[in-house]
Amino acid sequence: MLRQVSIVFLLLLIVAPFSPAAAAFDTPASHAIVMDHRTGRVLYGKNIDEPIPTASMSKMVTVYMLLEELKNGSVTEDDTFTVSEKAWKKGGSKMFVRVNDQVRIGDLLRGIIVQSGNDASIVVAEGLSGTEEAFAAKATARMRELGLTDTTLKNATGWPDPDHRMSVHDLARVAQLTIRHFPEHYEIYSEKSFTFSDIKQGNRNPVLYSFDGADGLKTGHTEEAGYGLTASAERDGHRLIVVLTGLGSSRERSVEANKLMQWAFRTFENYTIVRAGKAVDEADVWLGQKVRVPLVVGEDVNITMDEAARKAMEVTAVYEAPVPAPIRQGEQVGEMIVRIPDAEPLRVPLLAGEDVDKLGTVGQIAAAISYMVFGNEKE
C-alpha cells in the first residue's frame, strides 16, 4: 500500500532571526540570475534562458575544457602550446604572448582567467583541438552533454559572432561545475594579478576588491553584449553564483553586482532540512524479524530559500508499506519530497536505516496471521 506521511521537522540549525520577505529585486541589467551553488536552484532570474552574446564570460568554457584535460592527465601545467600568428595578432585583451613561442599551460591558464587574454584563449583552443573552430564545436558538444542547452560557441574568446551565444543560466552552470569539479584550480579565479613577459595585469573582476567572500569569476564587455559579470562568493559555507549582463559601463557593472550579491545573501539562507542518518519515519515490515525499519536520508538535505518559503515548506515521505523482508541497510524504500513555493519539488531517496532479516517459516506464518488480525502495532 502506498503511504504518504507529512513530516514536520524542528530545524535546530536554523538560527537566522525572522525577517519579513524581501521585496522583489530589480536591476537595469538586461539579463541576470542568482543561483545557489549547492543545489542549482534559481533564486532570482531575469531573462535567464535567452541565448545572448557573452563577451569574455564564455572564456569560462575554454578554461573548463582545459581543466578537464588537466584532470584526466592528457596535459600537465608544465606542458607547452605553440603560439600561432592568429593568436598573436588577435586584438582585445591580451596576455602578450609572442608568435612561435612555447608557453606553459599553467601560464596560459592564468593568462585567460586573470588577464582575460584573447591570445591565450586561442593558443589553448589550437593546442587542444588543432583549430579554434574545431575547439568551439567540441566545446559546444561538451556543454550540451553537461545540460547547457542554450550554449552555442563559435570561438574560444567570446569575440562577437552572430551565432556565439550562451544564456546567463548556462554561464551560472559553467561556474557551478568549475567550482564543484576543479576546486584546486578554481582558486586561480581569485588571484588579483598575473605577470607574464614582465607585464603585470590586474584581474578585472570588481567584486574581488569590494565584496567580502567573493572569489571569482569572469567579466565581459563588447559593444553588442554591454558590460557583464559572472561572480561567486561564499559566506559561512553558503555559496551563491551571480550573473548579470547588458549594463552600460564598468562602474554600473560593479555597482549592480555588489547590490545583487548583497541582496541575495541578505534574503536567502541555507537551511538543513534533515541530517544524514536521521530517522525521517518508520515503515512497517512484512515478515521480518523486526516489525519496523527506520527510514533515513543518505546525506544532509539542504535548501536555500527565504523566510516566507521556509514557512510554506511541505515535507512528505512516500513509500510502499509494509516493506517486505529481507531489507538491507542503505536500500532505497521510498522518497522524501520537499515542496516550497515557486520551485520544482526536491526528491530525496529514503533509505533503510538498518538490516531486517526475514523470519523463518514458522515465524512467517505467525506474523502473517498477527498482521492480518491486529496490524503492525507498535511494541
Rank of each mutant, 00 (worst) to 15 (best):
T82M: 14
K71V: 00
V83Q: 07
Y64I: 13
V61C: 14
K90R: 04
E50P: 02
A87Q: 06
Y64V: 09
T76L: 05
E68Y: 00
E50G: 01
D49L: 12
P51S: 09
V83M: 11
E68K: 06
T80F: 08
W88N: 12
P53A: 11
D78K: 15
T54R: 07
K89Q: 12
V83D: 00
M95W: 02
K94G: 12
E77P: 10
S93W: 05
E85D: 12
D78N: 13
M60T: 11
V61E: 05
M65K: 09
P53T: 12
T54Q: 12
G73N: 00
P51D: 11
I52V: 15
Y64N: 07
D79M: 10
Y44K: 09
L67M: 11
S93Y: 06
S84L: 02
W88F: 15
K94A: 13
V63E: 04
E77Q: 12
T76Y: 04
E85K: 10
M95V: 09
K94W: 07
P53L: 09
M57V: 12
V61D: 02
V83A: 06
M95P: 00
K89V: 14
A55N: 05
Y64W: 09
G45S: 06
E68S: 03
G92Q: 00
S56Q: 14
V61Q: 09
T54V: 08
P53S: 13
P51G: 13
G45T: 03
L66D: 11
G91V: 10
K46P: 05
K89Y: 05
K59S: 12
K86D: 15
L67G: 01
T54P: 12
S58D: 13
Y44Q: 06
V61A: 14
L70A: 10
M57K: 04
M65H: 03
T80V: 15
V63Q: 08
E69T: 10
E50Q: 11
Y44C: 04
S58E: 13
L70T: 02
M65F: 10
D78F: 13
K89G: 11
K94N: 13
D49W: 02
Y64H: 08
K94P: 14
G45F: 02
Y64F: 14
G73T: 02
T80N: 08
S93D: 08
A87T: 11
Y64A: 13
K94D: 12
T76C: 04
N47F: 04
W88E: 10
P53W: 10
P51E: 14
K71E: 11
V75A: 07
L66M: 15
L67P: 00
E77G: 14
